[in-house]
Structure formats: structure tokens, C-alpha cells
Nucleic acid binder design. Structure first.
Lengths: 174, 174
DNA sequence: TTTTTACGTCAACCATGTTGACATATTTCC
DNA sequence: GGAAATATGTCAACATGGTTGACGTAAAAA
């Protein structure tokens, strides 16, 4: 739709470059969430549930407050989906014995299963893209994407140290 | 939260690598949309309006049908935001003289202004990340992100040809 | 003992997506 | 020329997932 070829002015190139970044993020996110949404729909769940399941799976025994910090939504919003996930047996709550105000959230076996099937699509999609682009491109992808994230959350993602190179996917399944 | 360090098993690394990709996309998109949302809120508009304004600005004289293909939402959903944008003077509709069923959408001056102020944040954010990561990383970022997008929309983004290198931002403003 | 923290809940509201049905103008096809 | 397909719009009902505001309880910290 936009002619990327006939460009000489570097300022225009920069503008075009940035806009393409904006658009690629939109399209990537749109397509990235599309497939899991379909699975969720059949279970009477939505994208919000997916996010909760994902981050609880990723951070076992996370507290409600910490989960809220990740999601950046209100506790009322979270409450709606979280209590549904608990009542339907995807997530387990147990009181933290060190600080009995806190409730530690963990996926049940059922929750783990669902998480797996939801992210299977997404992992496959990313794996495909990584494979096609190659290890160096992946490194660049990570660096840029990390830079887009607000500083407060950047620390969640280490820049892969050059001392420990990413295996170059020689033969083992991709 | 997750220990990225103590890893030896390459399969586990792969899994970890993919999950970090998933998460970075989530955080990046969350933060990427945060600031424009605030501006929109003050004008009584939402993210959906932003998307319409963005893609109309990017594709002047786009038809409703083509816009729907980009957004992948129903015409009823689009109608709600689009008619508001037209009635509030952000977007102009005119009949295509070649095919008078079609309505060509274009930003008004007011629409252009709003688009600029909305994407200013996003462009700045991307520019910052590009600058920090460097030209090669940007190239990798583009390749991977493109690969994540559904094939049907990948063609919107050419892989920058190696014959025309991206200017290496020596001095000119970033 | 007061205050702060962690969590929960009720209620109302808004933005944005959905489906389904129906309408109108225009173009295309046979 | 008439039928079918296309481009657009509209009404209505509904679901999801966000918001604010108010209020409440238990536990820990000051």
C-alpha cells in the first residue's frame, strides 16, 4: 500500500521505518492472539483468562498484587476472571504461611493443560518466525522489543549474554 | 521471576526463549498502547478510533471494505467508530466516481493533527528502541516480527534489501 | 493501638467486540 | 433487461473486559 522503494530522503525513510514498526506490532499482536481466542471461546473463557493463566503458570505462587502489577488492570477486573478460574478448577489459591494476608496462586493440573494448549499455537508461531529469521535476527528482535517495553518491566528480560551463545539449531527439532 | 541463568538443556532453553518472546510481545503491546489511550480518553475516543485514524491516514482514499480487511473486525463494529469520526470531523468520506458504491476515506486536517499527536508517542518509543539496539538489531526485529504475522499480511512489509542499507544514524537527529 | 497492606465484593458504567436481520444503491453477469 | 453480487449502512441484542467508587475484613507493621 505504501511505496517503500522510491525513497531517497533519509528523513522520510526514518518516518517510514518507524511507521512500519508500529504497523508490524499491530498485525503481529492481532494474529498472535487470534488462535488462542478461538480455543478460549469454546470454553466460555476470554483473552483475559488466558493472560491470567499464562502469568500464573509462568510465576507459580504469585500473589494477587504481583499479578496486578504485571497485567496493569484493576483488582476488580482481575477478580472477575480470577474467581472464575478458581471456581472452575484451573487455579489454586493457598494462603501464604509467612504472611497470611497473601494468597499464592498456582495452576492446577487442569490449568497447566489449558495453558499448554493455549500457548502451543503461540509458541509454534514464534518458533516458526525465529527459525525463518535465524539466530542473529532473534537477538535483534529481543533487543528492540525489550527497548519498547517500559523500563520498569525491561528487567524481566535479560539480554542474552554473548558468553553463552544461543544454540544454532543444527539438527534437533525446531 | 524465572531463572534464566541456570540452564544447560538446550530444549529447555528453547522453551524459555519462546516464552520470553510471548511475554515481550505482551509487555511491548501493553506499553505501546498505553500512552495514546490516555490522549484518546480525554477526547472521548478509544483505541478503536486510533486504529481507524491510523490506517486511514496511512492509506488515503481507502475503502471501508479494505479497512475492514486490515482491522479484521465486523462492519458493525467499524461503523460505530467510523461514523463518530466522520461526524466529529476527523475523517472525510467521498464517493468513488469510478464505482459509486464505494466510499473513499481520508483524514481531514483535524484528523491528521490527531493522528500525529497519537503516534508521536509511539514513534518516539520505537525510535528510542531502534536507536538503542542499532541497525542490525532493527533488521532482525523486522524479520522476526514479519514472520509472526499471518502470511496474508506479511507482504505489506518488504524485507529491506541488503542493496540499500539503512542509514547508520551517524549524526542527524534520531 | 493505630495504620497500612492484601484481598474481596457490590454496583454502575463504558468501550468494543460479536451475531443476525434487513435495506439500499450500484455494478456485474448472463 | 433482469438477476445476482458487491459495497455500504443500520437496528437490536448481547458478551467481554476494562473503568470508578464505596465499603469491608483480616493480618502485618509501625
Amino acid at each position: 500500500m505504501v511505496d517503500v522503494k522510491s525513497m531517497a530522503n533519509p528523513l522520510f525513510l526514518r518516518e517510514e521505518e518507524l511507521r512500519q514498526g508500529i504497523e508490524m506490532l499491530f498485525f503481529a499482536y492481532r494474529d498472535f492472539t487470534g488462535e488462542p481466542d478461538a480455543i478460549l471461546g469454546e470454553l466460555g473463557l476470554g483473552r483475559a483468562h488466558h493472560r491470567v493463566i499464562y502469568f500464573v503458570g509462568r510465576n507459580p505462587e504469585i500473589t494477587v498484587t504481583d499479578l496486578l502489577k504485571i497485567l496493569k488492570i484493576t483488582k476488580q477486573s482481575l477478580s472477575r476472571v480470577l474467581s472464575q478460574l478458581v471456581s472452575e478448577g484451573y487455579i489454586n489459591q493457598e494462603t501464604d504461611q509467612a504472611d497470611r494476608r497473601k494468597k499464592l496462586l498456582t495452576l492446577t493440573e487442569k490449568g497447566v493443560d489449558l495453558e499448554r494448549s493455549l500457548t502451543a499455537n503461540q509458541r509454534a508461531r514464534i518458533a516458526r518466525a525465529y527459525r525463518a529469521a535465524g539466530a542473529e535476527a532473534v537477538q535483534g528482535f529481543r533487543e528492540v522489543l525489550r527497548g519498547i517495553i517500559d523500563p520498569a518491566d525491561q528487567e524481566r528480560f535479560e539480554i542474552a549474554s554473548p558468553t553463552m551463545p544461543v544454540p544454532r539449531r543444527s539438527k534437533g527439532r525446531g
